[in-house]
């Protein structure tokens, strides 16, 4: 196993992110085959910084989480920057994953999370019959959804961007997408595209790398997703280019079971805490911040969106 990391020549590549990394994790980063940037995401530093609740009210969901000993959430494992399983370490890295781990730590004292990845259209059903405690991960707060689910949040407001092949100069405005094939992932990005660009032809691919391939290979003219995700991809893949187009806003919330409003209040209180004590900012720096240039955004105001 001594030849586990055969290639160290681009340690330089990770150097730029080094000052940041020092606060994100204690361990030394090594170049691995594949996307070096994804391997450098490690939010354990931010999680260590996260708060633990003092006394919690007893609610059915909290009782269940305590009894089980870990938080069970519906989310993704293949969304770089937001929730991606690090195959080397087994840790789930990213902003959304970090929020889930912080919530687990807040409730239990330890950041233990089990992620169920059944797809974006199973979330309401799974919350409805308590097969998961929460749904975290590009889950857009919407009023019609709020009839089935209690949303705590928003904890992040995403805007849709448009990514094209590096040599594509045709797509300048949103209207240029009319009648063209646009790749989207099911969920928030799809909803936003259907609403804001009704004349575009959505082509759905589950994984972000599949969407990127579809653009590179010319199967679609563009890929629309939240700007942070796209920016991260365009930094890594030189064949892809981020356009200036931005549209829509998707307030991401934490879905909680409808029949346990007291639990939602606890989660809202949790969001207030991590936004106020700097954990939220630290988490952003360790995750999306590693992939994208630019300043850390300000956290949104919890409860500021209809449905939350």
């Amino acid at each position: 196993m001594s030849t586990r990391y055969p290639n160290r020549r681009s340690a330089l590549f990770a150097l730029g992110a080094l000052p940041l990394l020092a606060s994100c994790s204690g361990s030394e980063t090594e170049r691995t085959a594949g996307n070096p940037r994804y391997a450098t995401i490690d939010q354990s530093g931010a999680i260590a910084h996260g708060p633990v609740a003092g006394r919690l009210p007893r609610t059915p969901t909290i009782d269940e989480i305590r009894q089980r000993g870990y938080l069970r959430q519906s989310g993704s494992l293949t969304n770089p920057g937001f929730a991606l399983e690090n195959v080397k370490t087994g840790a789930v890295t990213g902003f959304d994953a970090g929020i889930a781990q912080l919530l687990a730590k807040y409730l239990l004292g330890k950041p233990e999370v089990d992620t169920v990845t059944g797809g974006s259209d199973t979330r309401e059903a799974m919350l409805g019959n308590h097969s998961v405690d929460v749904a975290i991960g590009t889950y857009t707060i919407k009023e019609n959804r709020a009839r089935l689910v209690n949303f705590a949040g928003p904890y992040y407001v995403a805007h849709s961007g448009v990514l094209v092949a590096a040599d594509n100069r045709d797509i300048r405005r949103l209207s240029d997408l009319d009648g063209r094939r646009v790749a989207v992932q099911p969920g928030a990005a799809e909803e936003s595209l259907r609403k804001e660009v009704p004349h575009a032809i959505p082509v759905l691919f589950e994984q972000s790398s599949q969407n990127a391939s579809a653009v590179r290979q010319g199967r679609v003219v563009a890929w629309s997703a939240n700007t942070a995700l796209l920016l991260g991809k365009s930094v890594i893949d030189k064949e892809l280019r981020m356009t200036d187009i931005a549209f829509g806003s998707s307030p991401f919330g934490i879905g909680t079971p409808k029949d346990d409003p007291a639990f939602k209040s606890v989660v809202v209180e949790f969001l207030h805490r991590i936004m106020a004590d700097g954990t939220w900012r630290k988490l952003w720096e360790c995750t999306v911040g590693v992939l994208t240039p630019g300043p850390v955004p300000h956290p949104p105001r919890v409860g500021s969106v209809p449905g939350s």
Binding site: Q210, S213, A214, Q217, G218, R219
Partner: peptide, 10 residues
């Protein structure tokens, strides 16, 4: 679906 285009067949 995702490999064939890279093998020259879109």
């Amino acid at each position: 679906i995702f490999g064939l285009p890279d093998a020259g067949l879109l």
